[in-house]
Design a protein around this nucleic acid. Structure first.
Length: 389
DNA sequence: GCAAATGTCGCCGTTTGA
DNA sequence: CGGATCAAACGGCGACAT
């Protein structure tokens, strides 16, 4: 329709998990706080009515930082960093466990508040969305300000918004003025505002591609925009090279996708210590079955069957392997998943200690479920080929 | 002795069926 | 009958994202 003059917003909640925690523990405002760790201790109430919080220095384990407040980031820690490493940089920073139920709650609140103003929303995870403003009558700046106010009123949280003619540019510019930012970018601003940035700011250029570009003397978007297309093609292939070139020129025609179905559902876990396939066989087996049960529960809760069962292993040396198996019929029950996952497991070398195990179900099809509470089950009606021998 | 959990997508080699 | 070929499915893997 209006493909030529779209107005696309990208909204990103500021330090989302940490900010939600600060609503609960306002006394932490202004302090370096990080979220992460599986067995991080909840704060405990003390005799004088104040709370005692865990510090990064108290942490032992293999967790990573999920979110850090801006105060913590100033001390050099950032999301994805191992907590043990972060503890060396900021031992006094407060450490809180993640509370996904709370984050999901606030996620729903902020998305609903945006939807009341602009309903064409693409979900991009728990803390960000794209919004297609094209068909709304209002002026862009007024709209963006209204959305920011609505989010704050609904949640008490701040967000950053970028608005531009497409998703690529909006994603970049929502980040330009964080936190509590608002950046509106037109085609004429690309050279001035986008080209000086690192190619890493382009969503889709990760560490590998950036490294390869660097080796070609390309570090900024401007350099990428100017790069010889033949050279790019030689190193990245036709399709990726064309995309790189378009991206550097701010060209992106992807629509805002307002609904989608999941492609796979998975569960994985990193062990507290690396487990030996033989010595820790029973522990591994229990974990493995537990993952299958949890994936099965997820499938049934969400109303899906899956036909492709897969496993993921991470070895002591951090190498990762996957195996999968496609069944003749989609399944959701834990036994069928466990059986197929077990078959996958036999195809993988087990000569080294393991650090992680995961189970995934893909090739999903929706399944009509009975109302919760009924016990009707079709599982087991058809005898499955059993190769447990 | 650093490196979570969950999910999507694209590419490539192989298999399979026509 | 053998070969060429083509598409679709599958399986593995890597890159990237939040």
């Amino acid at each position: 329709m209006n493909a030529a003059l779209r107005r696309i917003a990208h909204l990103d909640m500021d330090a989302f998990y940490a900010s939600v925690e600060l609503l609960r523990y306002p006394e932490l405002c202004g302090m370096p706080v990080v979220i992460g760790g599986r067995r991080t201790l909840e704060p405990v109430m003390q005799g004088d009515g104040s709370r005692r919080f865990a510090r990064l220095r108290d942490y032992a384990g293999r967790g990573v930082i999920t979110t850090a407040t801006y105060e913590a980031r100033r001390l050099g820690v950032s999301s994805g960093m191992g907590l043990m490493k972060a503890a060396r940089l900021a031992p006094d920073a407060i450490l809180l466990p993640a509370d996904f139920d709370a984050y999901r709650h606030y996620s729903r609140l902020f998305k609903a508040s945006v939807a009341a103003i602009a309903p064409r929303i693409e979900d991009r995870g728990i803390d960000e969305i794209y919004i297609d403003l094209s068909d709304l009558p209002d002026d862009t700046l007024g709209l963006a300000k209204r959305i920011k106010r609505a989010v704050r009123e609904a949640t008490g949280l701040s967000c950053s918004i970028g608005v531009s003619p497409n998703k690529l540019l909006s994603k970049i510019c929502s980040d330009l003025d964080k936190p509590d930012g608002l950046t509106i970018l037109g085609r004429d601003d690309i050279a001035h505002r986008i080209w000086p940035l690192s190619v890493r700011k382009i969503n889709g250029i990760g560490p590998k591609a950036a490294e390869k570009l660097a080796s070609l003397g390309i570090a900024t978007v401007a350099e990428l925009a100017q790069a010889d297309t033949t050279l790019l093609q030689q190193h990245f292939g036709r399709s990726f090279a064309a995309w790189l070139h378009a991206a550097a020129h701010g060209i992106d025609d992807r629509p805002v996708v307002t609904s989608s179905e999941p492609r796979s559902i998975s569960r994985e876990t990193t062990f507290e210590r690396d487990l030996h396939p033989v010595h820790d066989r029973s522990a591994l087996s229990e974990i493995f079955t537990g993952l299958c049960v949890r994936v099965s529960e997820d499938l049934q809760r969400k109303g899906y069957l899956g036909r492709t069962i897969g496993i993921k292993l991470r070895y002591q040396d951090f190498r990762t392997v996957t195996r999968d198996l496609t069944l003749p019929e989609p399944v959701a029950d834990p036994a069928a998943i466990r059986r197929a996952a077990g078959e996958c497991l036999r195809r993988v070398p087990l000569d080294q200690r393991l650090r992680l195990l995961g189970v995934r179900v893909g090739a999903l099809s929706p399944c009509m479920r009975d109302a919760p509470g009924t016990t009707t089950s079709r599982q087991g009606e058809l005898p499955l080929i059993s190769s447990t021998g």
